[in-house]
Amino acid sequence: MKRSRFPFIVTGLVLVFFYLPILILVVDSFNASRFGGAWRGFSLKWYVRLFHEPAIWTAARNTLVIALIVTFVSLLLGTTSALALHRFSKSRFQRVHYTLIYTPLVVPEILMGISLLMAFVAAGVKLGMGTIILAHVTFCISYVALVVLGRLQDFDFTVVEAARDLGATGWTATRRVLLPMLAPGLAAAGLIAFTLSVDDFVITFFVAGPGSTTLPIRVYSMIKHGATPLINALSTLLLALTFTTVLVSQRLSKSGALEGGQ
């Protein structure tokens, strides 16, 4: 029986469409040519040049500091939120809570960026690292909460009761049983928050201030100055970072809760 080739062709085209530009970018970052296009031989010089740009280092440091703080804060708040959502799933209050948690995932980023900017300006907050962290936390919480909620849904809470039964206080049971058992899910959620924070451009663009440039913003301003090969190198590095975190987080979320949360 002859099988239709059609699905293969479509799949192939989709892959090409998605990944060819990225592949070209990665290959070009190793191209000795200044203007891309023609291959002038393998070179690491753009990477070397990149490492000698102080502005890049500052941006990298900012990005990392922001991402780490955002990961920590949104893990803390998102997990708490998920626990409340799960525990009191039937109350009307928590249904409102769920909607609020879900909303940032569907609101257009540009809208969030503008509204956050307006909120900060109205409140007289100085734009900078602080505002970026706040902005990132607002949407990272949602992802963390949904991923953790997915985990809680197939979590058997009798183990927590067992710990209480054996003499543990509520807090000890949480610390010694609930959290260790949720650890893989929490790690996956944390990595998602980290990746989202590192990658975010639109919202960051609105709420960033002087001296708080992050890598995506840096890439954007470099494009305006036409430093293409450097951007390729930087983007390739960002890509590698994102890819690794996503891979690790997928490893950690074997149950597919990650997909369910997004």
């Binding site: 058997d156 009798t158 009761e161 710990a163 049983v177």
Partner: peptide, 11 residues
Amino acid sequence: TIFQSYALFPH
């Protein structure tokens, strides 16, 4: 208590 599902700590 000995729970119906035993509720041993898997970790």
